[in-house]
């Protein structure tokens, strides 16, 4: 993981409702990013409407639920199982397998990693939403390099 990846992760954390992001790879490299709690749980509150307390309460409850779920929610990185070249699409003129925001099922193809002309189709082991694609199409990648940030749904 290089500085650019870390910068991307920080930006991602800033824009999210998450309080903390923890990443560890099998090499023992560990990264913990944390936001101040107050910042983490300041979802936009609806403007109170007079005479609508009960609605507001419902809103409050719902909001609490959302916040709680956000914190529990699992963000994970999908790392490269091998050294190779990263490709987002099956062919240069084809649509990419996934985009940021795509919800993938277990077994869905995420990308191709080519090594010595062996085209390795990498599939998702989890159901989730692709939050961020961390590498560029055609980029050489190392073993264990983070490729995707996935939010489990």
């Amino acid at each position: 993981m290089d500085l650019r990846d870390v910068r991307d992760l920080i930006k991602l954390l800033d824009e999210s409702n998450l309080a903390k992001l923890e990443i560890e790879d099998p090499n023992g490299f560990k990264l913990i990013l944390e936001k101040e709690q107050s910042q983490a749980i300041t979802p936009k509150r609806p403007v109170p409407v007079r005479g609508a307390e009960s609605v507001l309460d419902d809103h409050k409850k719902l909001e609490d639920k959302i916040v709680a779920r956000d914190i529990d929610q699992e963000m994970m990185t999908i790392t490269s199982p091998m050294v190779g070249t990263f490709f987002r699409a099956p062919a240069p003129d084809a649509d990419p397998f996934v985009k940021e925001g795509t919800v993938v099922e277990v077994g869905d193809t995420l990308c191709i990693i080519e090594a010595m002309k062996l085209m390795n189709e990498i599939t998702s082991e989890f159901r989730g939403r692709i939050v961020k694609i961390l590498v560029e199409n055609g980029q050489p990648i190392e073993y264990n390099q983070p490729l995707f940030l996935l939010e489990r749904v």
Partner: peptide
């Protein structure tokens, strides 16, 4: 030769 592999997890 064109070798195409599909991974299941690791």
């Amino acid at each position: 030769v064109l070798t195409e592999l599909s991974a299941i997890g690791q």
